[in-house]
Nucleic acid binder design. Sequence first.
DNA 1: CAAACATATGAATAATAGTTCATATGAAGA
DNA 2: TCTTCATATGAACTATTATTCATATGTTTG
Lengths: 120, 120
Amino acid sequence: MKKNELECCESTEVHEELLAQVRENLPQEEKLYDLSELFKVFGDSTRIRILFVLFEAEVCVCDLAAALGMTQSAVSHQLRILKQSKLVKSRREGKSVFYSLADSHVRTIIDQGMEHVEEE
Amino acid sequence: MKKNELECCESTEVHEELLAQVRENLPQEEKLYDLSELFKVFGDSTRIRILFVLFEAEVCVCDLAAALGMTQSAVSHQLRILKQSKLVKSRREGKSVFYSLADSHVRTIIDQGMEHVEEE
DNA sequence: CAAACATATGAATAATAGTTCATATGAAGA
DNA sequence: TCTTCATATGAACTATTATTCATATGTTTG
């Protein structure tokens, strides 16, 4: 990173200090990437709807598809993404596969998001 | 929604009840959409990095661009999105515009996400 | 073991979103 | 007022992603 890039806002000196401090406290690039990837999973209304259904109960794929009015394939693709992010887990029972929430962070994150959305 | 869609998993009866209950407790479609739109904002590493910089201090656009090694334009576009979602606010001081976090939900949501990502 | 059922998955398509480039807006100073 | 600096924004391009369709995998039952 070249120092020249910082030549902005005229008062270069002061900002250099600030930027140095900011960079120091910034998490590793990989962590930030993983974090954004996690939120990307929440950033789709189909997956959000799936999670809300799973708040209620452990549900099999075809019921999920029925509840959401979507094809089995579309739901299955999204379940795979949710599972890869460890937001849901699955359990096979005969021909069916039942999905449920993986841990409590899911609920907390969504609740906080809801609070933000519901403000004003 | 046609009842025929629910003919799956053979034991239709039981699931009908479950699905009726699930549908009842599901938030309005609009709420779910807004929620996913909010998380979509968190689901980009550029915006996550911007938010982490703002955790440290109130920063002007060109310093943000410098800190992240991005063009002023790209940062400005993302700031607009963050502002529309009310995650950041801005304040003009002469030629510069300073950005800062809008409320505490931002921090809570990101912290919970971090916890999830950092597990195992 | 063959047929039926539930789910998973690869490829293709369609829609969405981020960055770049050029330029517009808005403020400060000569 | 004209120039310069900081930021904002529209359009084009590129990349990413969700859904569909066809089909594969895995399980139960006759």
